[in-house]
Design a protein around this nucleic acid. Structure first.
Lengths: 200, 200
DNA sequence: CTGAAAACGGAACCCTGCCTCCGCTTCGGG
DNA sequence: CCCGAAGCGGAGGCAGGGTTCCGTTTTCAG
């Protein structure tokens, strides 16, 4: 055997290359237009036939899911990094919001759930929720200017904040203002102000 | 001639009745599941054949648009009424938010735009935007506790608030809290707090 | 009541998009 | 270089849903 042989047989080079192309194409197309892209389109952009895709992914759904999950965990890592730059809970919250805003803007259709079933909660949000919830709880625990919040509130606020940062919303906001980064910070300020208000 | 004759011939009774049924069925189904419903489904629920629908609406798209526009102007009227109950800008804003929240919750799929083209802004939001913008501007002009807002901000804030009140967002929020009316008011408070915060 | 114009309904048609299948090509060890 | 195995690709099967068409039924003026 030669190379990184593991068990049985090594994967053929061309196949490996093709799969990379497929994933690349799928990432781009799905990010842009979501689940509406056809399998043939992905195949065409990747420069392969549809059969090549189906040999690896048993259905379009599988391909989509795979691509989205990869994008999600990637995103989650970046967010974690962004939020870890300081110890002050409120600052961390702000950093998280700005980072999330940017991601939503760039991966719009991919991160947004295409109702993958009926009541199935989409993993993108599912993964983010705990982090946000924790951050909010910490902020409240720290008593940091978050006057009128009660222990039960984080759940609502987390949901609310996440909604505000979903791709469709973010796209519209950026479109309306024309200025991406400025918008991101304005949104963050809005949310933080909402959380911070001391008298209702 | 007998009855409300206008020009040429009067519309046949059965047709009128059928059209009412079709619109009723379409309203219900679209409100529930959006553009995903099939024309046959609408026909079946209305108790007519598909041909009957196509005689009046040249395409599914037309039917959908008609139903949605009707729902929108209806909604707009209700909102206007809700906001007119007081003179205090901030209170009006609050009332508008709560009313909008409820509407979004109940007409979810219908009020939410099914990307009717490419960059076409959906009429639902289009119709609401001016009202909200005006309200915000008034509030700022009145100098009412809205400390750090500048004249240019209403545009951003209006967009942002509308996003937060779109059907998908509202549905999730209500689902997360389990309590509809309570959630509506919590959201209103959040937004108002966000707007009202006096020091950034 | 009667006839013709209008409306009905749903079977059939077509187009689009997912997925399968099989003959051809490419890889890579001997 | 040669051969078997693995992978390739895209034509075609199949299903679902929008739209059309035409024989039948309903309405209503005379």
């Amino acid at each position: 055997m030669s190379g990184s042989g593991a068990a049985g047989r090594r994967e053929r080079r061309d196949m490996q290359r093709n799969m990379e192309r497929v994933l690349q194409a799928a990432r781009e197309l799905f990010a842009e237009r979501g689940a509406a892209v056809t399998v043939s389109e992905v195949a065409e952009r990747a420069g392969v036939g549809v059969g090549t895709i189906y040999r690896r992914f048993s259905s379009k759904e599988h391909l989509f899911t795979a691509v989205r999950q990869a994008a999600c965990s990637d995103a989650r890592l970046q967010l974690a990094a962004a939020a870890a730059t300081t110890h002050d809970p409120v600052s961390r919250l702000g950093a998280l919001i700005v980072a999330l805003y940017r991601q939503s803007l760039h991966q719009a259709a991919l991160l947004d759930s295409p109702r993958s079933g009926a009541g199935i909660p989409d993993d993108a949000r599912h993964g983010l929720y705990p982090a946000l919830h924790t951050l909010l709880s910490e902020a409240i625990a720290a008593g940091q200017q978050l006057g009128h919040l009660r222990p039960g509130d984080p759940a609502v606020l987390a949901t609310l904040t996440l909604e505000l940062l979903r791709p469709p919303a973010v796209q519209r906001i950026s479109q309306a203002t024309g200025d991406c980064d400025g918008a991101a910070e304005q949104v963050a300020r809005f949310v933080l102000d909402g959380l911070r208000a001391s008298d209702s």
